[in-house]
Amino acid sequence: MAIKQHSVLPGFGLSLGYTLLYLSLIVLLPLSALVIKVTHMEWAAFWHAVTEPRVLASYRVTFGASLIAATLNLVFGLLLAWVLVRYPFPGKRLVDALVDLPFALPTAVAGIALATLYAPNGSIGRWLDPLGIKVAFTPLGIVFALTFITLPFVVRTVQPVLQDLETELEEAAASLGATRWQVFQRVILPTLLPALLTGFALAFARAIGEYGSVIFIAGNMPFVSEITPLMIISKLEQYDYLGATAIALVMLAVSFVMLLVINGLQWWSAKRLGRRK
């Protein structure tokens, strides 16, 4: 019988009631406090708060660096997933486990480690400095921190799809005369596309909100390497609650949009793979 009905199981009222109550108290009520706070602002004040030049510069830094980091991970994440799924090499299980390090390592730790490594006198920075490449305390440092933080996303979305990819598809393409590169381009890549984009979107969404790992390496120079979350913090430190809230609302809106995009991509991905979500 295709119709699912679990009405005999007990506890529906209790579990759903508790879920809704807890969700409302912890998430919905506080988030609506933010929205309500902004409605007390005049439009002009709000507009001024979210478009003052220093804040605008922070959007550019945040979105630019996030976009570059997510793109880097799109390429290297695919490569890493590919190598992990398809090629045997010693220590593979270890590398596979290590990919999740950015999820497990506190962001502040990653921040100070990267900042120390890439400082002009750091273990890596001292080799780059003579070449005129400055990483720490520049937007490039932000890109590095965000690349670290968002590294697992693309790998973890692409890996399972790649694992389930039927060899027969590739064999069929090869038997029809396609070169290996053509098989990759025309058969494998289109299959992976939804997963790749989902991973990219997840990485991007995470990157724009990231704070802990970035502030240590960014140098936080106004107009150059200040990220938007930092703007919220600095407004708070100046007791400019309204200004902080206004910027936070912009970030929240972006989060919502990203959430919708990601949901859409996952739906598409599930449809593409013929799975029921």
Partner: peptide, 28 residues
Amino acid sequence: LITLIDLPFSVSPVVAGLIYVLLFGAQG
């Protein structure tokens, strides 16, 4: 409902802190 449950993952940690300041802070 599932989307709402996932929501905290997509909110910036700084915004997550801020919303509680707005509720319980001296100005909240």
